[in-house]
């Protein structure tokens, strides 16, 4: 019974739910502020995403007459719920252990696909031609960034599995435990190509500027979320902020989970700091310094560079045993 209560608390309040939403929105605010400063602007206050959410809940909800109603409203809920569940799977070293379940990395991989699927459902259910274009682009985008992600995850699973005497470990908590005992994978030269591949995967998954092709504002007017207004849009914004925590948290758990001492609060701040640095490197600087690429360019890019980098890591890991 206590286990169940703990699970609900984890899902709704501490690592998932309220805490993750607040952290994600706050990180997004910082992202907007830093992006503005990089472009020599003043920029919005860091709490702007919270204000946007309050505003969105006070707006009228417009539903297109030709939309498929159930699918139209299911899509944002699906994406949001999926990300809520995914956050609870992310271990924060020294703060939260995650689930001690041996396949949580695989579950996470499937959950990570949910936001894209939610966008696809929403886009196609809205019956808008822009939504349909966004749907096809989102699908191509997903197919291109999933492959390098998969290879990176398999590489790390193999690395940890081989070192601990098994074959491959698809358990995030075991991967974190291994790194706590043997040093972070960030400092292992065979893992550097995989780390680079993961860094390249982040902007693609988050849909920020060089790879924001499915939601390209200036071409297909935000694509799948075009027809959403008010609360529906707010749910999509929440989904994006949670996705940011999941992706950044996954990167930290895979490559650099090392905590700072034993204090709970210090570790939490340390996790926040790591998220912040990773976000600035992989999202903010990338999105302020590049322009949008075409769909075919993005597809080729993802199948070439990150995949090859991740494969190099895989081969090095296999050679090392």
């Amino acid at each position: 019974m206590t286990n169940f209560v703990q699970l609900i608390l984890n899902l709704l309040i501490f690592p998932g739910g309220l805490f993750a939403v607040a952290l994600g929105l706050f990180l997004m605010g910082i992202d907007r502020k830093i992006a503005a400063r990089l472009q020599r602007r003043v920029g919005p206050p860091v709490y702007q995403p919270f204000i946007d959410l309050v505003k969105l809940t006070r707006k009228e909800m417009v539903v297109p007459g030709t939309a498929h109603l159930q699918a139209f409203w299911l899509a944002p809920l699906l994406g949001f719920a999926g990300m809520m569940a995914a956050v609870t799977l992310i271990p924060i070293a020294g703060v939260y252990q995650g689930f001690k379940y041996s396949g949580d990395l695989l579950v996470l991989l499937y959950l990570l696909a949910l936001p894209a699927i939610a966008l696809m459902i929403g886009g196609s259910a809205s019956s808008s031609p822009f939504g349909a274009v966004g749907f096809s682009r989102e699908m191509v985008m997903m197919m291109s960034y999933e492959l390098p992600l998969l290879v990176v995850l398999v590489t790390i699973a193999l690395k940890v599995g081989l070192a601990t005497g098994g074959i491959a470990t698809f358990s995030l908590s075991e991967i974190v435990q291994f790194q706590l005992e043997n040093g972070a994978l960030l400092f292992d030269y065979t893992m550097l190509p995989a780390l680079l591949a993961f860094l390249v995967f982040i902007p693609g998954n988050m849909g920020v500027v060089p790879f924001d092709i499915p939601e390209a504002e200036t071409e297909i007017v935000e694509g799948p979320i075009l027809e959403y207004s008010g609360t529906g849009l707010a749910l999509f914004k929440l989904m994006t902020s949670l996705k940011m925590i999941v992706v950044l948290g996954l990167a930290i758990a895979l490559f650099f989970p090392t905590p700072l001492g034993k204090n709970f609060l210090v570790n939490l701040l340390w996790f926040f700091l790591k998220c912040l640095v990773l976000m600035v490197i992989a999202i903010t600087i990338v999105r302020t310094s590049t322009g949008r690429v075409r769909m075919d360019q993005a597809f080729k890019f993802y199948l070439r560079y990150p995949t090859v980098l991740a494969l190099i890591s895989l081969v090095l890991t296999l050679l090392q045993r």
């Binding site: 907007r32 503005a36 602007r41 003043v42 920029g43 919005p44 206050p45 702007q48 204000i51 946007d52 417009v62 504002e217 200036t218 007017v221 935000e222 979320i225 075009l226 027809e227 959403y228 207004s229 849009l233």
Partner: peptide, 14 residues
């Protein structure tokens, strides 16, 4: 910079 007022250009009328 009107973003300092919290403004943002949006592509969709919705």
């Amino acid at each position: 910079d009107v973003e300092r007022l919290g403004c943002k250009y949006c592509g969709s009328p919705k």
